[in-house]
Amino acid sequence: MNARIIKTALERTGFAAAVVAIFTFSVFPLYWALITSWQKGSEVYTVRYLPSAISWANYRAVFIEQSFGHNLVNSALVAAGTVGVSLALSVFAAYGLGRVRFRGRMLLLFTILGASMFPQIAVLSGLFELIGWMGLYNRLPGLVLAYLIFTLPFSVWVLTIFMQRLPREIEEAALVDGASPRVVVLRILVPLVRPAMVTTGLLAFIAAWNEFLFALTLTLTDRARTVPVAISLITGASQYELPWGRVMAASVIVTVPLVLLVLVFQRRIVSGLILGGVKG
């Protein structure tokens, strides 16, 4: 037993402890929500660290006694609509910003980037009024329109960076052959930036699925409510007596698709976050 071996052993143990700590820190609240959601009725009022019997009563209650299924469909429609519109618009904008040099290009690019950073609250009163005028209050298209404020600038930014990286000759050959710019974008550039489109699409989906402030303000009834708003509004018999089992069941249901997305697309999501945050 020399000092060196002891030192290495200590280091290894310390490292393993750090890994376990990070893992526990990340997963514990979700684990806690899960075991709470499996407890029936008043069982939630005894603190248990391991699941005893697994009951799905809370999950059934969320769908039967509340219109949670409807809220889920709303969330999915709004998120999918937001992704579709953002990608369709931003892929063309990114061509303009990323493949063509013109005066004011950088100013425009950074204005768009700046637009994604501004506080949602700053546009809330004007947006509320606008959505009302357009007759979109308490309707899903209103939310899609509102969400473009943050998904569109982000998508444009990331796709522009990707387009910039492609060699210039790619489109030139096609242009010489007489292809229109729209054809160049759709047939040549889109397939090449598809990985970036998947990444931005995923991030836009997550952002729209999770959004709360606009959804809370621009909807009024369950007809148009998305899941985050529905979860925030679950109340019990009194303000002090929330049906925690049910709240946790609903929380687990919305979280599962996201956790799956994250586990499957981890690399793409991370690269997108980094491009959005730092220039890659």
Binding site: L30, P228, I231, M248, S251, T255, V262
Partner: peptide
């Protein structure tokens, strides 16, 4: 990434 991906409303409730 899990804590980041969970909707803020949900983590606030948790």
């Amino acid at each position: 990434l899990i804590p980041w991906a969970i909707p803020t409303v949900v983590s606030a409730r948790m």
